[in-house]
Design a protein around this nucleic acid. Structure first.
Length: 858
RNA sequence: GCCUGGGUGGCGGAACUGGUAGACGCAAGGGACUUAAAAUCCCUCGGAGCUUAGUCUCUGUACGGGUUCGAUUCCCGUCUCAGGCACCA
């Protein structure tokens, strides 16, 4: 009987489905385990990245289930988003139609992979029954001031025809359109007040012990807390005061000029009627025309202009000039800085360029520092000089002392600044959740009453050919009555960033059918938090930070008990493959290459770098084709075997072959000896064993131990699979080379075969299920308890001891395991090769490591 | 520049707390079976050396040092790759 994966996989998937094998409910008597993979955007087809992500998750889900946990393992769809609108225009269809067709297609594909999802909990975020609760949460946030609208400078992507959040801008470009530079526009926009939670989000980064440090480090970086001091500089000959933010108050006595951001609101007033008014305005106009990416690029030359106005250094009482400078950022600190050219490299360069004064206020301990000799700023610790009463203090101590002094004089105060800014969620898009707000000429901004929710996204309208949102031109949508005065009013036509949906979907999985509120507290409290979350590293900041923020909001609103959503996080690496390029036809799909040549022109194909699989580079493998050829079990196993999950996975067609060969070996070892194996019960440890049977029995239990350890504590599925491969190799050896005739040997073989099947079942669930039934079992494998190794089976009568002389391996001996250290040492010193290498020299020292090694030092 | 994480055979990767470096797999080479091929099975496989071809010797985990009886593993320095942040005052 031949291994026919397609046929038996379909059979078992149907059986699991029919029995509702993966559907779960709350059971207070059992320990819960919530395993979650990041839900996909329904683009139409699953790709290798999905397959890897979901396979890793499925192995853990099945493993935990076999260990007796009540496992929640749901799946759903991040269903709003721009591609649906573009596709709708292109194919003359509707985003909803396109989205739901894609969901159906992808769901069918996921089912052919045999993943153990509870499909009864499926969520699509574009369903009004989902986003109505999101709208409700938005209204509650609005009430508490956590959602607000303001006119401000925002990031605009021309391709998206929409505003983007700061987190969605990468290297000055849109995160979805990496070639599209983001421009700055001034617009009305809705924001969520993530900055209220900045301190806590940062603090908990240090407590997320189940997260990779790289991710928490990135988040810390993004939140960007810095402690510093606000210092008030009076404007000379005026009552005005300019506040600056600095992290280096210790250098205050060396501040010899000030710089303002071009957008600083006080500039116009300061220069009005002054000698420099026209020139300064011209400079500001020129600077602001340059887009923000170019303006802040590191190669942009530092430039500034004197305003003609001075201010007073509050500790030296000296008049210092005020400049406007292109490198000062309005959004950080106060948009004004005090400049200390002697101890800050940027200020040093600026001062040299414009001939400004230098004053050393920190002296190194080993050499004198003089202003006229300086080639660069002195930025490391030292002792304060030229700093009045603070002279002689170490500069680190002086930071607090000077701040306290300023505070006592009313000239400044200690403060904390964050880099993170509020989350801009307005999108000028159609295919998203409507923001439940109404604008009334009389009453102003009015929230939609909770009873009127959901504000349903209308489906009966046509897309605009230019790609813009049809909502602002759809009268039936935007025309409404004011909930307060019943007069004519206009609906908000912006929709929410799709990251809002993904910020709470994981809680909704606990109660997807609940219709009295966003969350059914009882069920959510049972399942939350997510015990293990798995997804791509690309969401290190975006989704994972938003979700942590949103969970805190939901907690403050009383919807969930937890404050952190994800206890453990696994970020899997990308799936990569080398690119192939034809000199005339550009990048080629693997199919377009035959024997190293382009099938269109026969030119020799250039093999390029190994890069993340992407359609644009055409270095993609369609998982469906692999499933059709080898079956899901092979595809799943290869994804796990080729590399540990957090590392990149390099695609290898031969590697897939190899895994397929292995599964065939497992198949044959059972099928070819079915009568012999089923003729006995698995070895139970009662009868003493010897020879190869004893070795195999030991190997079986060693393998159980290794695999359990690899999966449970390390998620190193590659070594777990390797361990089972070793076991299968040993089974084959006994079956083929020894050709056993006795029942005891077959009983040991049966024990080993069953262990191999059960241990492999989370990885390749179909073939193992089939073999398990062949052996006469009735249960589904997922209902079989995870095997436990027997300690006594691991005991070895002889152990191998490595003998070293001066740290070099010279011999290996087998000694009875019962030997103590003294006996082993005696044995080692008598070993012929050890004697040779000692060569009659004086033995200085003998190190004995129990059951492992002896090192003789001469 | 700063913050993470890496660098081990021809390749993907093992080596868990410092104790035999290279598990497992791929590729390659040789052999068995076969009229032949496929499939399958067996053997070899880091490098160099050899008057004893071995249970041999030397060498080898990016590079240079150190600690240790012993270092892929710990410490210091350097190079390099990947990801993130970056004129943040």
């Amino acid at each position: 009987m031949k291994y026919n994966p397609q046929q038996l996989e379909a059979k078992w998937q149907a059986a699991w489905d029919k029995n509702g094998l993966f559907n779960v409910s709350e059971d207070p008597l059992r320990e819960k385990y919530y395993l979650l993979e990041m839900f996909p955007y329904p683009s139409g087809k699953i790709h290798m990245g999905h397959v890897r992500n979901y396979t890793i998750g499925d192995v853990i889900a099945r493993y935990k289930r076999m260990c007796g946990k009540n496992v929640l393992h749901p799946m759903g769809w991040d269903a709003f988003g721009l591609p649906a609108e573009n596709a709708a225009i292109e194919n003359n269809t509707h985003p909803a139609r396109w989205t739901y067709d894609n969901i159906n297609a992808m769901k069918a594909q996921l089912k052919t992979m045999g993943f153990s999802y509870d499909w009864d909990r499926e969520i699509a975020t574009c369903d009004p029954e989902y986003y109505r609760w999101e709208q409700l949460v938005f209204l509650k946030m609005y009430e508490k001031g956590l959602a607000y609208k303001k006119r401000t400078h925002v990031n605009w992507c021309e391709k998206c025809q929409s505003v983007l959040a700061n987190e969605q801008v990468e290297n000055g470009c849109c995160w979805r359109h990496t070639q599209e530079e983001v421009s700055i526009r001034e617009m009305d926009s809705w924001f969520l007040k993530i900055t209220d939670y900045a301190e806590e989000l940062l603090e908990y980064c240090g407590k997320l012990s189940g997260w990779p440090e790289s991710v928490t480090a990135m988040q810390k970086n993004w939140i960007g807390k810095s402690r510093g001091t606000i210092i008030r500089f009076p404007v000379a000959d005026s009552k005005e005061v300019i506040e600056v933010f600095t992290t280096r108050p210790d250098t205050l006595f060396g501040a010899t000029f000030m710089c303002l951001a071009p957008e600083h609101p006080m500039i116009k007033g300061l220069i009005k009627g002054g000698s420099m008014e026209a020139q300064v305005m011209d400079f500001i106009d020129r600077t602001l025309k340059i887009d923000s990416y170019m303006r802040t690029a590191d190669f942009t030359v530092k430039e500034g202009i004197y305003t003609g106005v001075d201010c007073i250094n509050p500790v030296t009482d000296e008049r210092i000039p005020i400049y406007v400078a292109n490198f000062v950022l309005i959004e950080y600190g106060t948009g004004a800085i005090m400049s200390v050219p002697t101890h800050d490299q940027r200020d040093f360069e600026f001062a040299k360029k414009y001939g400004l004064k230098l004053r050393v206020v920190i002296q190194p301990e080993d050499r004198p520092l003089k202003e006229e000799d300086m080639q660069e700023a002195y930025e490391v610790p030292g002792i304060l000089v030229n700093s009045g009463r603070f002279n002689g203090q170490g500069n680190i101590d002086a930071q607090d002392n000077i701040t306290e002094y300023l505070q006592s004089q009313g000239k400044g105060y200690k403060t904390v600044k964050f880099r993170i800014r509020d989350w801009g969620i307005s999108r000028q898009r159609y295919w998203g959740a409507p923001i439940p707000i109404v604008y009334c000429d009389k009453c102003g901004t009015v929230p939609v009453p909770a009873d009127d929710l959901p504000v349903v996204l209308p489906l009966d309208l046509d897309m605009l050919p230019n790609g813009g949102s049809p909502l602002p031109v759809t009268q039936s949508f935007y025309e409404t009555t004011c909930p307060k005065c019943r007069g004519k009013a206009r609906r908000e036509t912006d929709t929410m960033d799709t990251f809002v949906e993904s910020s709470w979907y994981f809680t909704r999985y606990a109660c997807p059918d609940y219709n009295k509120g966003p969350l059914d507290q009882k069920r959510v409290d049972y399942w939350m938090p997510v015990d293990q979350y798995i997804g791509g590293i690309e969401h290190a900041i975006l989704h994972l930070l938003y979700a942590r923020f949103f969970t805190r909001v939901m907690n403050d609103l009383g919807h969930v008990k937890v404050r952190e959503p994800f206890t453990n996080l696994l970020t899997q690496g990308m799936v990569c493959k080398e690119t192939q390029e034809c000199p005339t036809h550009g990048y080629l799909f693997p199919k377009e290459v035959k024997e190293g040549r382009c099938i269109k022109c026969q030119a020799e194909v250039i093999t390029g770098n190994t890069l993340k699989m992407s359609k644009s580079k055409k270095n993609v493998i369609d998982p469906q084709e692999l499933i059709d050829q080898y079956g899901a079990d092979t595809v799943r196993m290869f994804c796990l075997f080729a590399a540990p999950p957090e590392k990149g996975l390099e695609w290898s067609d031969q590697g897939v072959e190899g895994v397929f060969r292995f599964l065939n070996r497992v198949w044959r070892v059972v099928v070819d000896h079915l009568a012999d194996i089923t003729g006995v019960s698995p070895y139970d440890g009662a009868k003493p064993l010897e020879g190869m049977a004893r070795d195999l029995h030991r190997k079986t239990h060693q393998t159980i131990k290794r695999v359990t350890n690899d999966i449970d504590t390390r998620f190193h599925f590659n070594t777990a699979i390797a361990a089972v491969m070793e076991l299968v190799n040993e089974i084959m050896q006994l079956v083929i080379s020894e050709d056993p005739k006795d029942n005891t040997s077959w009983a040991v073989i049966r024990e080993a075969v069953e262990a191999a099947i059960v241990l492999l079942s989370p990885v390749s669930p179909h073939i193992t299920e089939e073999l398990w039934r062949m052996l006469g079992h009735q249960q589904h494998l997922i209902e079989v308890p995870w095997p436990v190794y027997r300690e006594e089976a691991l005991i070895e009568e002889n152990i191998l001891v490595v003998l070293q002389v001066n740290g070099k391996v010279r011999s290996k001996i087998e000694v009875p395991a019962s030997y103590d250290e003294k006996q082993i040492e005696e044995f080692a010193l008598k070993d012929q090769r050890v004697v040779t290498f000692v060569g009659g020299k004086q033995v200085k020292k003998v190190i004995v490591v129990k059951k492992k090694l002896v090192n003789v030092v001469v």
